[in-house]
Amino acid sequence: MTAKPMTKTQLVAALAEKMDADKKTATAALDAVAELVMQEVSAGGAITLPGIGKIMCRARPERQVRNPATGETMTKAADKAVKVTIAKALKDAVNG
């Protein structure tokens, strides 16, 4: 069984400890990074977080989908999806 994911409060506490700063500063830093990622990706760009991966917005074309309950085929409009490509360093650390 896997452990529960780290909450924002736990992440802020760990970040504050690593930065030798208070939790208010760590919260501001985390919120700033999240806001920058959101702005860049929602504008259609991509952002690389060194050692973690690359986050980008990908356009998906209009396509045919099937309702599994009824079997009915319908057309789903084109949309955008967020794609995360994991960095090799993180993959190696997990599998290492």
Rank of each mutant, 00 (worst) to 15 (best):
M1G: 15
M1V: 13
A3T: 14
A3E: 13
A3R: 10
A3C: 11
A3V: 11
A3M: 07
K4M: 12
K4L: 13
P5V: 11
P5A: 12
M6T: 15
T7N: 08
L11I: 05
L11V: 02
L11D: 01
A13S: 09
A14L: 12
A16S: 05
E17M: 07
K18A: 09
M19R: 11
D20N: 15
D20C: 11
A21T: 11
D22K: 06
K23V: 14
K23A: 11
K24Q: 09
T25K: 09
A26R: 00
A26K: 01
A26H: 02
T27W: 02
T27Y: 04
A28Y: 10
A28I: 14
A28T: 12
A28N: 13
A28D: 13
A29V: 13
A29W: 03
A29P: 01
L30M: 14
D31T: 04
D31A: 11
L36R: 14
L36I: 13
L36D: 13
V37Q: 00
M38L: 14
Q39C: 08
Q39T: 14
Q39V: 10
Q39R: 15
Q39D: 15
V41Q: 01
V41D: 00
V41T: 02
A43C: 09
G44E: 04
A46F: 06
A46W: 03
I47K: 00
L49I: 11
L49Q: 06
L49V: 10
L49T: 05
P50H: 11
P50I: 13
G51H: 03
G51L: 01
I52A: 06
G53S: 02
K54G: 05
K54P: 04
I55W: 01
M56I: 05
M56K: 09
C57T: 09
R58H: 10
A59W: 04
R60D: 03
R60I: 08
P61Y: 07
E62Q: 15
E62L: 07
E62I: 06
E62V: 09
R63W: 01
R63Q: 07
Q64K: 15
Q64T: 15
Q64I: 15
Q64R: 15
R66H: 08
P68L: 03
P68G: 03
P68E: 07
A69R: 15
A69I: 12
A69Q: 13
T70H: 07
T70V: 08
G71Q: 01
E72I: 05
T73Q: 11
T73A: 13
T73R: 05
M74Y: 12
M74T: 14
K76W: 11
K76A: 15
A77Q: 09
A77C: 05
D79Q: 12
K80M: 07
K80A: 10
K80N: 07
V82W: 00
V84I: 14
T85Y: 01
T85D: 06
I86R: 02
A87I: 00
A87N: 02
A87H: 00
A87P: 01
K88C: 03
K88A: 08
A89E: 10
A89V: 07
A89T: 05
L90C: 07
K91W: 04
D92I: 02
D92F: 03
A93E: 13
V94Q: 01
V94E: 01
